[in-house]
Design a protein around this nucleic acid. Structure first.
Length: 383
DNA sequence: TCTGGGGTCCTAGGACCC
DNA sequence: TCTGGGGTCCTAGGACCC
C-alpha cells in the first residue's frame, strides 16, 4: 500500500481527483488536513490549489477501492447478516439481536479495530436506535472513532448542529430553511408542520420533522435492489459547438449505457438524454419505445432525434448525457414480422463491441494486478 | 475558482379513461 | 350539451446521496 519513503497522504493536505491539469476536474475525496484548510469534496481542483498550493493530488484507483470495499463489507457482515450497503464505504448493520445496548460501544470498537488492523484503513462507527441516528453519529469527529447517538442524546448532540448536517438537507433546502430563520436541527425539530410543509412540500416535511427529532422507522434493507436506470455522461474539456463533436459524444455514451444493460441482461423501454449549457442550465428529453431494446443503434437513434429537438445546433454545450429506464428482463425477444432487417446487423455490431470491451476489461485487470502485486506482509482480504 | 459521474426519489401538469 | 372527479401514465424538472 504505502511505498518506502512515501508520505502517508492521510496525514498531509491531499486529495483524490481527476486530472489536475483539466480545469474541470473536481475533488472526489479530501484528507482530514485538507478538510481543515477548507477544501471540500466536489470542489474544483483549481480552487483547492489556490487554497493550498502544496496540496498533494493523487488519482483514484477504483478497482482497489472496490476490493477494499468488499473486504470492509465482509468484516461488517461477520458481525450481523442484517446489513445494508449504503455506498462504497458505508453500511448499516442491525445489531439488535446480536448485542445489548450496554456493550454496543465495545462491539463497535472491536469492529472498527478489526477493519483498521486487517485492511489498513480507519473507519468511524456510529451507534443509534435507527439508521438515521447511526449515520449521524458516524459523521461526528473523525477518524477512527466510535460515537453513540441514543434518543436521549439527540438534544445535546444533534440539535445544536446546523440544518445542513441533517441527512437529506442539501444546499437548496438549507437555503429555504435559513431564509425562514431555521439554522439548527433543533430549530427544525420544533418548527410547525404547516410552515415546514409550505417550505419543502408535504412528503419531505414529514420526513424532515421526524428525522430532526431523531426518528426514523426505515428498515435495514438486506436485499440489493435491482437497478432502475443506467446512465452515462461526458463533460467536455472545452464547450462544444460543432454538431459532429456532440454526435461523437452521444455515440460514446450510448455505447457505454447499452453495453451495461446487455451485460446485466436488461432491456429498456425509455431513453432519455440531456445537454448542459455553458451556464449550467440543463435541457432534457425522454421518449418511450414501442418495444424494449438493448441495441446501441436504437438507443443512439432516439437520442440523436431528441438532441435535434432541443439543441439549436450552435449554442455551446458543456456536457451531454444519456440514460435508459423502464427496464425489463424480457428474455424472449418477440421478433416482429415487420422488424427492421438492419436490427440483426446492429446486434452483430453490439456482439463485437461487447467482445472487444471484455478484452479491454481483462487487460485492465492485469494492469491492476501489476499495480497491486500480492504482498504477503499484508493480511488477506476476508472473502 | 468555476463547478464530475452515477444513481434514487418526488412533484407538477397534461393526456386519457371511466 | 356541458359538467365532476379519481386513477394512471407520461414527460420535464429538481432535489438529494456518495
Amino acid at each position: 500500500m504505502l511505498g518506502e519513503g512515501k508520505p502517508d497522504i492521510r496525514l498531509v493536505p491531499s486529495v483524490v481527483s481527476g486530472d489536475p491539469s483539466d480545469r474541470r476536474s473536481i475533488i472526489t475525496a479530501a484528507s482530514i488536513p485538507a478538510k481543515k484548510l477548507g477544501i471540500k469534496t466536489a470542489q474544483p481542483v483549481s480552487m483547492a490549489l489556490r487554497t493550498c498550493p502544496s496540496l498533494v493530488i493523487v488519482g483514484g484507483d477504483w478497482m482497489w477501492y472496490k476490493q477494499c470495499s468488499e473486504g470492509f463489507i465482509a468484516i461488517c457482515r461477520s458481525y450481523s447478516p442484517v446489513l445494508q450497503q449504503f455506498s462504497i464505504d458505508e453500511c448499516f448493520i442491525d445489531m439488535s439481536f446480536r448485542c445489548k445496548r450496554d456493550n454496543a460501544v465495545e462491539v463497535a470498537t472491536r469492529l472498527k479495530n478489526q477493519v483498521r488492523d486487517t485492511l489498513g484503513f480507519t473507519v468511524n462507527v456510529g451507534i443509534g436506535a435507527n439508521k438515521l441516528l447511526a449515520k449521524m453519529a458516524s459523521d461526528f469527529e473523525k477518524p477512527d472513532k466510535v460515537h453513540t447517538l441514543w434518543e436521549e442524546e439527540v438534544q445535546e448532540k444533534m440539535w445544536p448542529l446546523g440544518v445542513r448536517d441533517l441527512l437529506w438537507v442539501g444546499k437548496k433546502t438549507e437555503e429555504r430553511l435559513t431564509a425562514y430563520g431555521i439554522h439548527t436541527i433543533g430549530q427544525l425539530a420544533q418548527l410547525g408542520m404547516g410552515s415546514l410543509t409550505r417550505l419543502v412540500g408535504r412528503k419531505f416535511a414529514i420526513q424532515l420533522h421526524e428525522n430532526a427529532n431523531g426518528r426514523d422507522n426505515s428498515p435495514v434493507e438486506t436485499e440489493v435492489a435491482e437497478a432502475k436506470s443506467y446512465s452515462a455522461e461526458r463533460t467536455f474539456s472545452k464547450d462544444y459547438t460543432d454538431p459532429k463533436d456532440l454526435d461523437r459524444a452521444l455515440f460514446h455514451v450510448a455505447c457505454i449505457v447499452a453495453h451495461r444493460i446487455r451485460r446485466d441482461n436488461f432491456r429498456a423501454s425509455t431513453v432519455s438524454m440531456f445537454i448542459k449549457h455553458k451556464d449550467f442550465t440543463v435541457q432534457q428529453k425522454q421518449t418511450s419505445l414501442t418495444r424494449p431494446t438493448d441495441i446501441t443503434a436504437v438507443i443512439l437513434n432516439e437520442a440523436r432525434r431528441m438532441l435535434a429537438e432541443i439543441w439549436d445546433g450552435k449554442s455551446p454545450i458543456r456536457q451531454v448525457g444519456l440514460g435508459v429506464s423502464k427496464l425489463t428482463h424480457e428474455s424472449a425477444i418477440q421478433m416482429s414480422l415487420f422488424e427492421d432487417p438492419k436490427l440483426e446487423y446492429y446486434r452483430e455490431w453490439d456482439r463485437q463491441y461487447d467482445e472487444a470491451r471484455a478484452k479491454a476489461e481483462d487487460a485492465r485487470m492485469l494492469a491492476y494486478e501489476r499495480r497491486h502485486p500480492k504482498d504477503d506482509s499484508l493480511p488477506e482480504f476476508h472473502k
